[in-house]
Simulated scan of single mutants.
Amino acid sequence: MKLIGATASPYVRKVRIVMAEKKLDYQFVQENVWADDTHISTSNPLGKVPCLVMEGGEAVFDSRVIVEYLDTLSPVGKLIPSQGRERAEVKTWEALADGVMDAAILARLEATWAHRKDSERSQAWIDRQLIKVNDGLKSMSQGLGDKPYCSGIHLSLSDIAVGCALGWLEFRFPDIAWRSEYPNLGKLLDKLMLRPSFADTKPS
């Protein structure tokens, strides 16, 4: 399998962590989708990463679809429950974490996208997205409480998604003081960073 992505993308990192936890072999191909000479559309018509290209050339895209597929490839380290409320809980955690990343990325693009003049940027839009980020962090903290992991006592996709969101915020928004406001989230991220799958994929 070939994974097309960028080391700075939290969605790509989520897939890479799942692959490491599942002990799956793959080739990582870095792609800058913002470059004029990007070829991502030949694999993903939406022009986004991550994109997983199968051995037969078929492409699977959207990180949620990819990680769900990967979890079926090996019984090692099952990350998503197969059915019922437990499955819905893990997928909801993933949706929450992805939503925080979605909002943060929209805020960053509005503030930094090179093809937009400063006069065209909307601070109101940025503020709206950052409210979503803070509300998402608050919900994460409340949901985690004093549990060792987001969905019980074992690592799951819930923790991987949340860890990727928190790691990306530290990378791109160091001014957001979420660690002091939500110390249980900081404790979770520190614990996750002890795992090689997280340490080896720190955004850069």
Score class of each variant (00 low, 15 high):
K2W: 14
L3Q: 03
G5T: 13
G5L: 09
A6Q: 15
A8Q: 08
A8K: 06
V12E: 02
V12T: 14
R13E: 06
R13P: 01
R13T: 05
I17Y: 12
I17R: 03
V18K: 05
Y26T: 14
Y26R: 07
Q30L: 15
Q30T: 14
W34S: 08
W34A: 08
D36G: 15
T38E: 04
H39T: 14
I40G: 02
I40C: 01
T42V: 14
S43V: 13
N44S: 15
N44D: 06
N44R: 11
P45Y: 05
G47V: 13
P50C: 05
M54N: 15
G57P: 14
E58R: 07
A59G: 08
A59E: 14
V60R: 13
D62F: 15
R64K: 12
V65E: 12
V67M: 10
E68I: 07
L70M: 08
T72D: 09
T72V: 08
T72C: 09
L73N: 05
P75M: 07
V76E: 04
K78S: 02
L79H: 02
L79T: 03
S82L: 04
E86N: 13
E86A: 15
R87H: 14
A88E: 12
A88Q: 04
K91Y: 14
W93P: 01
L96P: 06
G99W: 07
V100K: 00
M101G: 02
M101Y: 14
A103N: 00
A103Q: 04
A104W: 07
A104V: 02
A104Y: 08
I105Q: 07
A107T: 03
R108L: 00
R108M: 02
R108I: 04
L109S: 15
E110L: 09
A111W: 03
A111H: 02
W113Q: 06
W113P: 01
W113M: 09
R116W: 08
R116N: 11
K117N: 08
D118A: 02
D118P: 01
S119M: 05
E120M: 06
A124R: 06
A124L: 03
I126T: 03
R128I: 01
R128S: 02
Q129V: 00
I131N: 00
K132S: 05
K132W: 03
K132C: 02
K132P: 00
D135W: 11
G136S: 06
L137E: 02
K138V: 07
S139D: 00
M140D: 01
M140I: 13
S141R: 05
G143F: 11
K147M: 11
P148D: 15
Y149F: 11
S151I: 12
S151D: 04
G152P: 06
G152R: 10
L157I: 08
D159F: 09
A161S: 05
A161T: 12
V162A: 08
G163Y: 09
A165R: 06
G167H: 09
E170M: 13
F171G: 00
D175I: 04
D175F: 13
I176E: 00
I176F: 08
S180Y: 05
S180F: 04
Y182N: 07
Y182S: 01
P183V: 08
P183N: 10
G186D: 03
L188E: 04
D190I: 03
L192D: 07
L192M: 12
M193I: 03
M193F: 13
R195Y: 11
R195H: 14
P196G: 12
F198W: 12
F198C: 03
A199G: 12
T201H: 15
P203S: 11
P203L: 15
S204L: 15
S204P: 07
